[in-house]
Simulated assay, not measured.
Amino acid sequence: MRRSEFDRAVAEEFGGGAAFVLTDVSLPGCGGRTAARALADGDAPREVWLALCAEMDVPGSRRYGVGRLDPRSR
């Protein structure tokens, strides 16, 4: 997962609350850091996304493959 995909996935999943989720929710899967801190510390966006999903009870069906753009039609 690229950082841009992470950002899209967070925006799609959490909408207007995305900023709060990134900066205020402590993630046990990231050593108790917030998603924003974990990313700033160099953690992989995919690992942070999965930790965020686990903490926020995002269903498995919405955890994988999100954030990707639809392929361009030829």
Rank of each mutant, 00 (worst) to 15 (best):
54 A>T: 10
49 W>L: 02
47 E>Y: 10
65 G>Y: 03
42 G>D: 02
29 G>H: 04
64 Y>I: 13
31 G>Y: 13
17 G>S: 10
70 D>T: 13
29 G>W: 08
19 A>R: 14
31 G>N: 13
74 R>Q: 12
15 G>F: 03
50 L>D: 06
18 A>R: 15
61 S>C: 14
35 A>K: 03
70 D>H: 09
21 V>I: 11
58 V>S: 07
23 T>N: 15
33 R>S: 10
51 A>I: 00
67 G>S: 05
49 W>A: 01
68 R>H: 09
5 E>L: 05
10 V>F: 02
45 P>V: 03
64 Y>K: 13
62 R>N: 08
45 P>D: 01
1 M>L: 07
27 L>G: 00
49 W>P: 01
40 A>P: 05
35 A>E: 00
55 E>W: 09
49 W>S: 00
15 G>V: 07
74 R>H: 10
27 L>T: 04
65 G>V: 08
36 A>P: 02
44 A>C: 12
50 L>S: 02
7 D>Y: 09
35 A>W: 04
28 P>K: 15
42 G>A: 01
51 A>T: 00
13 E>I: 12
51 A>E: 02
30 C>Y: 11
53 C>V: 00
37 R>M: 11
60 G>Y: 10
74 R>A: 14
19 A>D: 11
74 R>I: 12
17 G>F: 05
2 R>K: 14
40 A>W: 12
9 A>P: 07
4 S>Q: 07
4 S>C: 10
3 R>K: 12
17 G>I: 04
34 T>N: 08
12 E>K: 15
38 A>W: 02
25 V>W: 06
44 A>V: 11
50 L>G: 02
46 R>T: 01
53 C>N: 03
50 L>K: 04
51 A>C: 02
69 L>A: 07
1 M>S: 11
69 L>D: 03
23 T>R: 09
46 R>H: 07
3 R>L: 06
18 A>K: 15
62 R>S: 08
57 D>M: 10
40 A>K: 14
19 A>F: 09
29 G>F: 07
19 A>Q: 12
42 G>Q: 01
50 L>C: 04
10 V>I: 06
14 F>Y: 11
26 S>A: 15
69 L>H: 04
55 E>Y: 09
14 F>S: 02
54 A>P: 00
1 M>A: 11
9 A>S: 08
41 D>I: 07
73 S>Y: 01
9 A>F: 03
66 V>G: 08
34 T>Q: 05
32 G>E: 13
70 D>R: 14
38 A>E: 04
14 F>W: 14
53 C>G: 08
1 M>R: 15
27 L>E: 04
45 P>W: 05
43 D>V: 12
16 G>L: 07
4 S>H: 07
25 V>I: 10
40 A>C: 08
31 G>L: 09
44 A>S: 11
68 R>S: 09
25 V>C: 05
43 D>C: 14
17 G>K: 05
37 R>C: 10
60 G>C: 13
50 L>P: 05
27 L>A: 07
67 G>T: 01
18 A>P: 15
37 R>W: 11
32 G>T: 14
22 L>A: 03
53 C>Y: 00
58 V>T: 10
6 F>Y: 03
74 R>V: 13
10 V>C: 03
